[in-house]
């Protein structure tokens, strides 16, 4: 039991994030709770705008100040509530204990600074080494992600998209963080490069025993890499559990819908079945289940009160009142 407690690296409780937009409040994240153990990979799956990136950015507390209305809940990382941490405590954690890989490598690097210098910045800051030593380590890090260290002094525009993402990965892993937040790390890349980059991340993650939250809307990626999966919809987790549970026994109509929208080569299906309708407007969420307006099973009960996340078994949680049917 004691061991299990120490094993828990990150625990988010009731995270709520509201943005301000043109005088209206946008309910981006609504009571999300999740946890990640050391060395574990959690996949956050959901459509664009479901609040996945907001969850990741609130862990690092790098949400844009000017747009934020409120952030509440708890984000316990290694026994410390990050939402209550002082700013300089956060700068000590960012890049050292927790680091992030951004979605678009084209814009994630500073265009006017050599790549090894960008990697070295974090190393010099957190590892307390000299600038020269930091540059040497940065070059080694580049080798680790498959870029010749000779190219360390080059600028981002001299690299291809896949190479840039490798640089971003090198930067994120340079200080061997305990937790890596990977925000759709392969979305902006060519399909052939996607597999390489994903494999690189997964290998380094194992090697460094880093826990990871992998944000994606690609179920194939989740199947290949993750240990656990959480399905996010309109800022809420609708279903979560181990990868096997979610993939083999999806319970929530939304999760089922997601799988239905994927082509399955083993069956002969003439048409994919997409989910009808659009995600709800985050400035005006429906009172009950956020998925009710699109759900084939929805009843009046679904549209009334909030629906609790219930445990079907220790490895599977689902937020739906119609699972037994």
């Amino acid at each position: 039991m004691e061991n299990e407690k120490n094993n828990k690296l990150l625990e988010i409780k009731d995270l709520e994030v509201r943005y301000r937009s043109g005088g209206r409040s946008v309910h981006a994240v609504n009571g999300v709770s999740l946890s990640v153990d050391r060395g574990e990979i959690l996949g956050l799956v959901g459509e664009t705008g479901a609040g996945k990136t907001t969850i990741a950015k609130s862990i690092l507390r790098i949400l844009p100040d000017h747009a934020i209305q409120s952030v509440s809940g708890e984000i316990i990382f290694d026994g410390e509530d990050l939402l209550k941490a002082k700013n300089n405590r956060m700068t000590a954690i960012r890049g050292y204990k927790i680091s992030m890989i951004f979605q678009d490598p084209m814009t994630a690097l500073n265009p006017i600074m050599p790549v090894n210098k960008q990697i070295a910045e974090g190393i010099a800051l957190h590892m307390g080494v000299s600038k020269r030593e930091a540059i040497e380590r940065a070059n080694k890090m580049l080798e680790t992600v498959g870029i010749s260290s000779d190219r360390g002094g080059e600028y981002p525009h001299q690299f291809s998209g896949g190479m840039k993402q490798r640089v971003v990965i090198a930067m994120a892993l340079a200080c061997r963080p305990d937790l890596l937040l990977a925000d759709e790390p392969t979305t902006a890349l060519d399909v052939t490069i996607q597999a390489q980059v994903l494999e690189l991340i997964a290998n380094l993650q194992k090697e460094l025993h880093t826990a990871m939250i992998l944000i994606t809307h690609d179920l194939g990626v989740v199947a290949g890499v993750c240990d656990k999966v959480a399905v996010v919809y309109a800022g809420e987790i609708l279903e979560s559990g181990t990868k096997e549970e979610i993939f083999d026994h999806p319970k929530h109509p939304y999760t089922k819908g997601l799988f239905g929208a994927l082509p399955d080569l083993s069956k002969k299906v003439s048409r994919l079945s997409p989910i009808d309708g659009l995600p709800p407007d985050p400035t005006n969420l429906p009172p009950g289940c956020p998925f009710a307006p699109r759900c084939p099973k929805a009843t009046d009960e679904c549209r009334q009160g909030a629906i609790a996340l219930e445990a079907l078994n220790p490895d599977h949680l689902c937020r739906c009142i119609h699972i037994d049917e």
Partner: peptide, 25 residues
């Protein structure tokens, strides 16, 4: 810009982020 978020996510102090990453660009 995204790279300013990247600079923040490295743990750089806000002062460094602004003067070394944002301003020169």
């Amino acid at each position: 810009s995204d790279f300013v978020s990247t600079a923040r996510s490295k743990g750089l102090k806000e002062r460094v982020v602004i003067w070394k990453h944002a301003l020169p660009n």
